Computed example of a mutant assay.
Amino acid sequence: MLLNNPPLAPSLPKEGDSRMAYVGRFAPSPTGPLHFGSLITAVASYCDARAHHGQWLVRIEDTDIPRISPGSEDHILRSIDAFQFDPDADIIFQKNRLNLYESAIEQLHQHGLVYACQCTRKMLGSNHIYQGTCRNLNLALKDQAIRVKVSDQEICFTDRLQGRHCSNLQHDLGDFVLKRRDGIINYQLAVVVDDYLQGMTHVVRGADLLDNTERQIWLGKLLGYPQLQYMHLPLAMNDQGQKLSKQNMAQALDLTQAQQLLQQALRALRQPEVELNSPAQMLQQAVAQWNTGLIPHSTELHGIYL
């Protein structure tokens, strides 16, 4: 093992209720308006939390400030209202919590677990596995990217839908970036810190994030955080075989059709039918009937929405 440091004791005060057996969340990024794929994730995370008598929170993951799309944050907030989701706490915005992520980096730095990297994309070329070029150069952290050290060991977890999933980060990725040269905090760090601070126990999200999980488990171990339970949902695909996403110009949710869209989302998740009613009553019925065993154990859903 390259890293023999013990896990760090958590230095940040937890905001969540540690007595809760289940705390889940919906955490969209405002890089575009919510689309049908986002709704599937919101519905599944909400129903799973409520079916377990747990809490459900909403977090806006907006650390990548240059990529924020004008109006998308407002559309997300209006969507939460239109579908009558009822978060158990105030919605938080990561752009207002940058000091917390900086504190986590400093905590890791004090234990020799991160380092500055001066490598540019041009220098790295097409090699997606970082070779540790700057690991032992002892560069000053200021105005440089900051990478976390990984170790030559297999990290595994059992996903509630996708089964056992493993990665050796040193072989598959190399030391990865926590903070970019331009000061932008990487998603991997922000999500790990916030999931801990908000007391998360369960993560329900799209299968496009499945390969991120080992990185987040590794960071959590270094910071001394408890490991979460994961369920990665199959992704809604368009007719071209592309996942519904902002990059592929997925259609924004029509908030005047909330009931119909809720019904379609539950059908996509293969859940029992719910009657058209107010969104709140439809969600209540969906929670009462929620059955994760009916969700397809695949990474893609085809032919469900255009």
Rank of each mutant, 00 (worst) to 15 (best):
125 G>H: 08
99 N>E: 15
127 N>L: 14
158 T>A: 10
157 F>M: 06
112 G>M: 11
113 L>E: 08
113 L>N: 04
114 V>T: 09
154 E>C: 04
119 C>Q: 13
140 A>H: 13
155 I>R: 02
113 L>Y: 02
125 G>R: 01
146 I>S: 07
93 F>V: 00
96 N>D: 15
113 L>W: 06
113 L>M: 11
96 N>R: 14
114 V>D: 01
157 F>P: 10
96 N>G: 13
153 Q>A: 13
92 I>Q: 09
104 A>T: 04
111 H>W: 06
149 K>D: 03
97 R>F: 07
125 G>V: 03
118 Q>P: 04
148 V>Q: 02
106 E>P: 12
92 I>G: 10
110 Q>G: 15
132 G>D: 08
129 I>Q: 04
100 L>I: 10
113 L>H: 09
135 R>N: 12
110 Q>M: 11
98 L>V: 11
102 E>P: 03
108 L>Y: 03
130 Y>E: 12
144 Q>N: 14
142 K>R: 10
155 I>Y: 06
135 R>Y: 04
156 C>K: 09
123 M>I: 02
144 Q>H: 14
130 Y>T: 00
123 M>R: 10
124 L>M: 13
109 H>F: 15
113 L>C: 08
93 F>T: 01
132 G>N: 08
154 E>G: 00
112 G>L: 12
110 Q>C: 14
141 L>P: 06
150 V>Q: 12
152 D>N: 15
133 T>D: 10
131 Q>R: 05
105 I>V: 12
99 N>I: 09
126 S>V: 00
143 D>R: 02
147 R>V: 04
105 I>P: 04
142 K>W: 06
155 I>N: 08
116 A>L: 10
109 H>P: 09
161 L>I: 08
151 S>W: 11
116 A>P: 12
121 R>K: 10
112 G>R: 11
107 Q>K: 07
159 D>G: 11
111 H>S: 12
152 D>M: 04
143 D>L: 00
112 G>P: 14
105 I>S: 08
96 N>Q: 15
131 Q>C: 10
116 A>H: 10
97 R>S: 04
125 G>F: 09
95 K>C: 14
148 V>N: 00
107 Q>A: 15
115 Y>I: 00
104 A>G: 04
129 I>F: 06
120 T>K: 09
124 L>K: 05
126 S>T: 13
160 R>G: 08
120 T>D: 11
123 M>V: 10
103 S>M: 03
104 A>I: 02
134 C>R: 05
133 T>M: 01
131 Q>E: 15
141 L>V: 04
115 Y>Q: 03
139 L>A: 01
121 R>L: 13
125 G>C: 09
140 A>N: 12
113 L>V: 09
146 I>F: 09
111 H>M: 02
102 E>A: 12
138 N>L: 01
104 A>F: 05
149 K>F: 07
119 C>G: 07
128 H>P: 06
105 I>H: 04
118 Q>D: 14
105 I>K: 06
116 A>C: 12
130 Y>Q: 05
157 F>H: 13
132 G>I: 00
156 C>F: 12
138 N>R: 04
118 Q>Y: 01
159 D>Y: 13
118 Q>I: 00
94 Q>N: 07
131 Q>S: 12
126 S>Q: 15
108 L>C: 02
130 Y>L: 06
109 H>A: 15
126 S>R: 14
155 I>Q: 06
161 L>Y: 05
109 H>C: 13
95 K>Y: 08
151 S>T: 15
118 Q>W: 02
